[in-house]
Design a protein around this nucleic acid. Structure first.
Length: 609
RNA sequence: GUUCUCGUAGCUCAGCUGGAUAGAGCAACUGCCUUCUAAGCAGUAGGUCGCAGGUUCGAAUCCUGCCGGGAACACCA
């Protein structure tokens, strides 16, 4: 259902009948009427003055009259300057509600099977997940759900960065200082354990840097201190040893590979627990340890096609100046890969795995340049899938104290944060004392639902592209524009529906005799129907813009409208049976729409709270 | 230096494919629980939409310049 389009078509007919001109319905501006004015939808007639050569008021009057006389849809109209406000008939809104009631999965588009891959999360296996990962994971999961609801066949993937020098740092520190510690013996999650050794490496390495700098200064007292620091940073015994370890790993040295396997195993166990708690999942996990050698064939291909060129020292480059970019290295002089080499190869690899029309990379905006280059190269190489690639670039999450810095220990750990939120949800719920009859398990599940709801909503309500502020106090707020508020509205509706069940009230609109005549709709009710009816459009918009914030906003606006309705009108005290049933049906559809929208941002809604 | 990005109420964010008097939430203040869950509702107050030009009947929205914040531009990943 697309009400705006119906109206636009009607108006287009009116223009033809009245002014004898053809204007495509899509060209007309139909928008919701501002609430200060009477009406439901508004046609902006300013835009028509040129082609129709009339005054805006004149056009408005003529088209308003036409619409009212030629369609059951339009009950009334008014013209204010260049705006034609149309009021739709009550019977139309009732029919709309009835038709929504009968539609299964209202709002979701039918499956069209276009394939899309969504890659997100992409953690490093040297430290646990933090707040930044939460935004990434929630975004990726949500976008995947939204695309599914828009009819796509979705493949969720995770490309785990499980090799490289940073992994060796944790491994080396563990080897030196670990004394055989395990997650079991230490009583902490594996990812945290490994992360601790990464920190230890950094600390020990810093000491060595200081020593080295002092040493250098003794030798060359006149050299710039910053230069010495930089030199020292590359030459500490620990760094050299880590590099040696990486070399051994690449050679397949058994001891090194075994240690790598053991420690990565711990990390995966830890990640799995965190992913499960977050409620995200993947259809396929790729590991860089398997893909890091890919891409060299692509370099060969590029050279053959004359798209890449070789410099004297043997390094391979591409010139992207014409595209407004720069020259970019794609293979080192020693023939080893750089980051983008892998990504080129992996792109082919993923496409061979799952021949998709679209491929979305959920990666932070600090890599904007990288993806611009990557996509441009793939296009130049003639990859037919390149046009469907999209970098869902999201902004950083900052704290009131500024940026998160792992070195300064200001990183908000994902597990800690979730745990804290759950505990706050528990305290708050107990204070209110509304679920005293819940079993321990039910209560625990509710706390988790509320905590994750608050967190996900807080992170997803903001436009993904923008840098956002994470204010811990606000994020646990349960009032106003929050996930918990929406969950609360849903729980309240469920409470009404349970009561209707107990009272055995039938609220199937088809069974209401003479509904069209019997029911007089109130403005709040019309507003609600209007909002629910806009769900398909909202899902479409969210999918086109890869913006979960659209769904979050929809759920909040709808919840607020319902709250107003709930306070203004009573359901069970309504003497008119037809109206009572209609309000129940309306409540049920509101709950469904809230559940759908929240589901698309990965938030569950409780039936009681 | 070059490129990208952001700048809307005290704070956090909507609105940006141009349309009416720029909206929410938080914080502040005032009301509303003997009626369906007060994790709620209603209301008051709060704005040079960073600044200056331009395009247009009409600009927070599009274009240009400037100011301010952030980021990227490695034979790192």
């Amino acid at each position: 259902m697309n009400i705006e389009l119906d109206i636009a078509q009607l108006i287009a007919k009116g223009i033809k009948a009245t002014f004898h001109q053809e204007i495509a319905p899509e060209e007309l501006t139909i928008q919701p009427t501002k609430k200060e004015f009477e009406g439901d939808f508004t046609l902006v007639t300013f835009a028509l003055t040129k082609s129709l050569k009339r005054k805006p008021e004149e056009i408005g009057e003529a088209l308003g009259e036409y619409a009212k006389n030629n369609s059951e849809l339009i009950a009334n109209y008014n013209v204010i300057k260049g705006f034609l406000n149309l009021k739709l008939s009550e019977s139309f809104w009732l029919q709309t509600l009835a038709s929504i009631t009968h539609t299964k999965d209202y709002g979701k588009a039918p499956f069209h099977g276009t394939k899309v891959m969504v890659e997100y999360s992409s953690p490093n296996t040297n430290k646990p997940l933090h707040l930044g990962h939460l935004r990434n994971n929630f975004l990726g999961y949500s976008v995947a759900e939204i695309l599914k609801a828009s009819g796509y066949e979705v493949m969720k993937t995770n490309l785990v960065n499980d090799r490289g020098i940073h992994i060796c740092k944790s491994m080396l520190a563990y080897k030196k200082f670990g004394q055989g510690e395990t997650p079991q013996s230490a009583g902490i999650k594996g990812d945290h354990l490994v992360g601790n050794y990464y920190v230890i490496f950094d600390k020990e390495n810093k000491k060595q840097i200081e020593q080295l700098v002092a040493h250098y200064q003794a030798e060359t007292p006149n050299e710039d201190i910053e230069k010495l620091k930089e030199k020292a940073g590359k030459n500490t015994p620990l760094i050299l040893e880590a590099q040696e370890m990486l070399r051994k790993w690449e050679e397949g040295d058994k001891e090194t590979v075994d240690l790598w396997k053991k420690m990565n195993g711990w990390v995966y166990e830890g990640f799995e627990a965190t992913y499960k708690m977050m409620g995200v999942s993947f259809d396929k996990i790729y590991y860089e340890s398997n893909t890091y050698l890919l891409g060299k064939n692509v370099v060969e291909e590029g050279l053959e096609k004359g798209i890449f060129f070789k410099k004297e020292n043997g390094s391979v480059w591409i010139d992207l100046k014409e595209e407004g970019l720069d020259e970019k290295l794609v293979l080192r002089a020693d023939g080893t890969s750089v980051y983008i080499t892998q990504d080129l190869g992996t792109a082919d690899y993923k496409y061979a795995d799952f021949p998709m029309e679209k491929s979305i990379y959920v990666v932070g905006n600090e890599q904007d340049y990288h993806f611009k280059v990557l996509f441009t190269i793939l296009k130049k190489l003639g990859r037919n899938y390149a046009d469907g690639m999209y970098h869902l670039s999201y902004g950083m999450v900052e704290l009131p104290s500024g940026k998160m810095k792992s070195r300064e220990g200001t990183v908000v750990d994902a597990d800690d944060l979730i745990e804290e939120m759950i505990s706050i949800a528990e305290t708050r719920t107990k204070e209110l004392g509304k679920i005293d009859d819940f079993s321990a398990e039910e209560a625990k599940n509710l706390y988790r639902m509320l905590a994750l709801g608050a967190l996900k909503y807080y992170l997803l309500r903001v436009d993904p592209k923008k840098t956002m502020l994470f204010n811990p106090e606000e994020s646990i707020d349960f009032q106003g524009d929050t996930g918990v508020y929406i969950q609360y509205i849903h729980a309240r509706i469920c409470s009404l529906l349970r009561r209707a069940e107990v009272l055995n009230i039938d609220y199937n609109l088809a069974n209401i005799p003479n509904a069209q005549q019997a029911i007089k709709l109130h403005q709040v009710e019309i507003e609600l129907i209007k909002l629910i009816a806009s769900l398909p459009k909202k899902i479409k918009e969210a999918a086109e813009e890869y913006a979960p914030s659209v769904m979050a906003d929809f759920a909040y606006t709808l919840s607020k409208a319902y709250s107003k309705f709930y306070n203004e009108l009573s359901v069970f005290n309504e003497p008119d049976e037809a109206s009572k049933s209609m309000r129940l049906a309306l409540s049920a559809e509101t709950a469904k729409a809230i559940k759908t929208a929240m589901g698309l941002i990965g938030v569950e809604v409780p039936e009681r709270m």
